[in-house]
């Protein structure tokens, strides 16, 4: 059990939660969070947004029962964290762009901090932006786009590596726009999860190398490995 330091609503339906403790995490990894006994049944996978020496930070959007229960937590309350799980992003040196869409910006803050040369960061939002100030110190260029298409402004040839997390359609568009270019694209996937540790095959997703588990083989995949033709469902 871990103790909550703060849990603030930073925009409509968007919360930033700080949990006390010292955590060793790779960028792009996630934890399984639980703040209840038996109901709901499953814990919820949430990406690591940031790590400091004495706490870890999560950024989450309220979409259903589990995240609604998270939103009710107050300073001093307990939460169970299992993890970190997943492969996370590979640290590459070169010209790097980070592209986040909506709540998909969450894993990119801690990620941005890991590069020797500051990456360019592109953050897209449907109707309201949040947490963007936090990215500034770690960005070479920071582009924020609200209610538009964040991908329109990107000159792909300027980058060797792209790291992206956001809605499936956005990541698929990034994969398409970079096809045939000399740029490696890493996408961070979402799937419903039960165990989170690779034991249940609940999060299998089809790739060109056969089925992969999003919780252990992912959540990060090379865009070229993903089977974008398969119909996606969570």
């Amino acid at each position: 059990m871990h103790t909550i330091l703060s849990n603030e609503c930073i925009a409509e339906g968007i919360y930033a939660m700080k949990v006390k403790g010292h955590f060793q995490v790779n960028m792009g990894q996630f934890f399984m969070l639980r703040a209840w006994e038996n109901h709901p049944i499953l814990s919820r996978p949430i990406s690591v947004c940031n790590v400091e020496h004495d706490h870890i930070e999560f950024l989450y959007k309220v979409v259903g029962e589990g995240t609604r229960l998270f939103a009710k937590l107050r300073e001093g309350d307990s939460i169970q964290l299992e993890g970190p799980f997943g492969n996370g992003f590979v640290n590459q040196s070169g010209r790097v762009a980070l592209i986040g869409g909506g709540i998909g910006i969450a894993p990119l803050l801690y990620t941005a901090k890991q590069f020797r040369n500051k990456p360019d960061i592109f953050l897209g939002f449907r109707d309201q932006s949040y947490l963007t100030e936090a990215y500034k110190p770690y960005a070479n260029e920071l582009h924020i786009c609200v209610n538009g298409n964040v991908l329109e402004h990107i000159e792909w040839s300027r980058y060797d590596y792209v790291y992206t997390c956001g809605p499936y359609a956005m990541m698929k568009a990034v994969a398409n726009l970079t096809k045939g270019l000399d740029v490696k694209v890493y996408v961070s996937f979402e799937k419903r999860m039960a165990c989170g540790i690779g034991a249940c095959y609940g999060c299998s997703t089809s790739t060109k190398q056969g089925n992969k588990k999003v919780c252990t083989d992912g959540p990060v995949f090379l865009a070229e490995e993903v089977d974008w033709h398969e119909e996606f469902s969570l």
């Binding site: 499953l42 609940g202 089809s206 056969g210 119909e231 969570l234």
Partner: peptide, 8 residues
């Protein structure tokens, strides 16, 4: 390969 679509 198991089933396609939602699993959980």
């Amino acid at each position: 390969k198991g089933n396609g679509g939602a699993r959980l």
